[in-house]
Design a protein around this nucleic acid. Structure first.
Length: 823
DNA sequence: ATCGAGCGGGG
DNA sequence: GTGTACGCTCGAT
């Protein structure tokens, strides 16, 4: 039979004869959940011989390799002699097929040891990705399978097909029918504690899909909310969750930090309740990636959208935190229900409407997550298509991996062998390498009015394309007609790099493809604001903009310091040219960094500025564009501590004409700051930017300081919160929160790891830890500490930048010495 | 200057 | 899972 479907999630299984078969879970155009099993793909890798003459001997030797493990035999099945390219140079390679993907690591090591083998290549590509790339398949695009319907009771799908042939269909059919299910859990928590999965049960789980809303909980109370469903206990709650998942069988299960919290928690509680969480023959799997955990459910693609927002979208969103509330506010203009999560334990014990509030809260979280997913998944899916990587992985990748996966996919089209990853030695060497970076026009600290910001769009990508910058085009010395970079300062001497123009490099070619595709889409978007096209454009932009960073990323396969240096040198040239042109038209430059320029409007009209940009764009190479980012009514540039010419980093705040404040580079406001410090900083920026009221802001802080001195500020605002990460006894270094935790323990209070310790720094002598007390026991907080270590560090640079000295803030009765601050 | 520890997201 | 593991900032020493 023949059938069209959208593949979503892929895995592979091992059959009776020890061969791997790919499983493609997806949805048919008739809305059925399908699993296609494709046994027709063999794992392989490449070996490069030292020279041509050795090939016959090597083939003989390699074909004999085999080993046994767990009663299975792993061996080389066949070897092909092929022509491949390495940085455009043609070479001989051996394509070595093995009987199972898991045999690759061992067999590649054995091959590598054979005398006459120069290098192993492409032995580290996931079997699934290898399959997708080699078969020219892309998840989430319509795919035609020809094969036989088979019976598989172990798979939770509507139909299973054993594929004979499978190929992508050229089609405009969209996969809008995909089923999404968002979920969120609430857990028993006591005030100021953090739940721990070995003792605190899951109290409720919300699930929200298309026309589907449910909150399951296990303490019965009177309610008229029909989405609330009661079960008997936690065990039944987890069983119900599992049942809904199997029944509803979504294509994407979506959570917010569900890799790090919800699913690991469910797994831990399921274990305690002795509930197996098996889906399609596999346990809910929790693995780790660095410090982060990853939760995988076979056949249901679990997307933790927090990961994608943090890794990919944060670059453009630039929020000061990425809580669900904050992200929803930004992207959806909606909020979470305002309830303290650590009071759920109290509510639970009280019962009735108290619990009901938390059920609403729980539901709202899933609603927000689903709405966010609706916005974000099209972006993820575009990156899926661009990189031939399943959404599950794309959702968790960073920029460099995105670029790398795109390049790996493209390398096949050019018959290139993709480079190996750097080894440890290379890695640590690369980490120490520095080079001249972007151009920075240091701002004079101060407050400014009527500002315009210009941005170069795709500055670096267009440099790479128009100057053909690539490892494969980099020359050892000058050649006729080659392109040479400006002079670059390196170790006190000047260097230049040369790139051939005889042929197009691999990276410039594939990047050009991205830029061309994007400009076509942008042209279409001008006629019609189609959200799918928006996503496509977003995906292409993401990959294009990350390419420069990729050259400079120490872990990159296509790492090149020379290319990175060449790109920044050209970037400096372009931005400096614009600055010079602006200055020649008497436009005052306030600040510039990498690809953005801040100017002061002074007496010039907005139209004049727009015309200036238009003129610049006429002269720029194609793909490159100077864009008016926005007009701002005020800006404050702040001195950064330890600032030097080279390393000056962005630290500024802007207010746009519609009153929106944009803050960059201020120390992230963290939990371990007191509320008074956070509030004061926020208020100061507001007063200065909104009302231009520097004196007011100054007086505001002076008042805060006076109030702190006179102990007029309530203890609540002085509390510092620090989480205890280990058992109290296991600390070598005793910080203030550890001292307090010990005191609490002595009082018979439980302070397991994860507890948030609250303390106030009290008047007294010695180290901070000697002065820390429990908030309830605080009689007189240490004014000096709060002024000097909390409030002042949060605002002093702001005032210094507008002409005040820090000391003036603490002087008892200083006359305000308002210096000239409007430059 | 070095080093241990917390932060993030979630409750 | 044909795989690889954060980066920064602050306080104590």
């Amino acid at each position: 039979m023949e059938l069209d479907f959208f593949p979503i999630d892929l895995a592979y299984e091992t059959n009776i004869v020890g061969r791997a078969a790919i499983q493609l879970f997806g949805r048919t155009i008739n809305n059925e959940k399908i699993c296609v099993i494709d046994p027709n793909f063999e794992p392989y890798f490449y070996a490069i011989p030292e020279n041509h003459e050795l090939i016959t001997r090597l083939i003989g030797q390699i074909s004999l390799l085999s080993y046994e493990e767990d009663n299975s035999r792993f061996f080389v099945t066949k070897i092909e002699q092929v022509k491949k390219k390495v940085l455009r140079k043609e070479i001989d390679a051996l394509k070595i097929y093995v009987n199972h993907p898991s045999a690759v690591p061992q067999l590649k090591r054995e091959v590598k040891l054979i005398n006459g083998i120069k290098e192993i290549r492409e032995a580290d590509l996931l079997f699934i990705r290898r399959y997708l790339i080699d078969k020219n398949l892309v998840p989430s695009l319509l795919t035609k399978v020809e094969g036989d319907l088979i019976e598989r009771s172990d798979l939770n799908v509507d139909l299973v097909i054993r594929a004979k042939d499978i190929k992508q269909v050229i089609s405009t059919e969209s996969n809008e029918k995909l089923k999404l299910l968002a979920f969120d859990i609430e857990v028993y928590t006591l005030e100021n504690q953090y739940p721990s999965d070995n003792k605190d049960p899951i109290l409720m789980i919300s699930l929200v899909g298309d026309n589907f809303q449910k909150v399951i909980t296990w303490k019965e109370f009177k309610t008229d909310k029909d989405y609330i469903e009661f079960v008997k206990n936690e065990s039944e709650l987890i069983l119900k969750f599992k049942e809904i998942l199997l029944d509803y069988n979504p294509d994407y299960l979506i959570g917010y930090f569900s890799d790090g919290f919800d699913l690991p928690y469910i797994k831990a509680r399921a274990k305690i309740n002795k509930i197996p969480l098996i889906f399609n023959n596999h346990n809910l799997q929790i693995s780790t990636k660095g410090r982060e955990t990853i939760a995988k459910i076979l056949g249901i693609s679990h997307l933790d959208i927090f990961k994608f927002i943090k890794n990919i979208m944060a670059g453009s969103l630039r929020l000061d935190n990425y809580t669900l509330n904050n992200v929803s506010l930004e992207l959806l203009k909606e909020k979470k229900i305002d309830l303290r999560p650590d009071l759920i334990g109290v509510a639970w014990d009280l019962g009735n409407e108290e619990i009901e509030k938390y059920c609403e809260y729980n539901l709202q979280d899933s609603i927000l997550v689903l709405k966010l997913a609706d916005k974000i998944i099209p972006n993820i899916e575009e990156l899926v298509r661009l990189t031939s990587t399943p959404a599950f992985d794309v959702c968790r990748m960073g920029y460099s991996q995105l670029v790398e996966n795109y390049l790996i996919k493209c390398s096949k089209d050019y018959n290139e062998l993709y480079p190996n990853k750097p080894d440890r030695g290379t890695l640590s060497l690369r980490k120490t390498q520095t080079y001249q970076g972007a151009f920075v026009f240091n701002p004079n600290p101060g407050l400014y009015e009527n500002i315009a910001v210009f941005d170069f769009l795709s500055l670096y990508p267009s440099i790479i394309v128009s100057h053909n910058i690539c490892l494969s085009t980099l020359l050892n010395e000058f050649e006729e007609n080659s392109f040479e970079t400006p002079e670059i300062l390196e170790n006190n001497s000047k260097v230049k790099f040369y790139f051939t123009s005889k042929y197009d490099g691999f990276i410039p070619t594939v990047l050009k493809d991205v830029l061309l595709k994007r400009s076509k889409i942008k042209a279409l978007l001008k006629q019609n604001k189609d959200p799918i096209l928006e996503s496509r454009s977003y995906a292409l932009k993401t990959v294009a903009n990350a390419t420069y960073g990729y050259f400079a990323f120490f872990g990159a396969r296509w790492y090149s310091k020379e290319c990175a240096m060449s790109i920044t040198s050209l970037g400096r040239k372009y931005i400096q040219e614009v600055i010079e042109k602006a200055q020649s038209k008497n436009i005052k430059i306030l600040y510039a960094d990498t690809d953005s320029i801040f100017i002061s409007l002074e007496d010039k009209s907005k139209d004049f500025i727009k015309e200036f940009i238009k003129q610049i764009n006429i002269e720029l190479p194609s793909f490159m564009e100077l864009e008016l980012e926005n007009f701002y009514s005020r800006a404050i540039f702040v001195m950064k501590k330890g600032e030097n010419e080279e390393g000056a980093k962005k630290k500024y705040a802007l207010i746009s004409e519609d009153g929106k404040i944009k803050v960059r580079g201020f120390e992230t406001i963290r939990r371990d700051w007191s509320y008074i410090a956070k509030e004061t900083q926020k208020k100061v920026l507001e007063l200065i930017l909104k009302n231009k009221d520097i004196e007011g802001a100054f007086n505001y802080v002076k008042n805060v300081i006076e109030d702190i001195k006179n102990k007029k500020i309530s203890n609540d605002l002085m509390i510092i919160r620090t989480q205890l990460k280990k058992e109290v006894g296991n600390y070598d270094l005793i910080g203030p929160h550890v001292v307090i935790a010990k005191k609490m323990q002595d009082k018979g209070l439980l302070v397991p790891p994860g507890s948030v310790i609250r303390y106030i720094v009290e008047d007294g002598k010695g180290l901070i830890r000697d002065k820390a007390v429990l908030p309830e026991e605080s009689k007189s907080y240490d004014s000096k500490y709060y002024i000097e270590n909390q409030v002042l560090p949060a605002v002093d640079k702001i005032f210094e930048s507008v002409g005040y000295d820090k000391s003036e803030l603490i002087e008892e009765k200083s006359q305000l010495k308002l210096k000239e601050f409007l430059k």
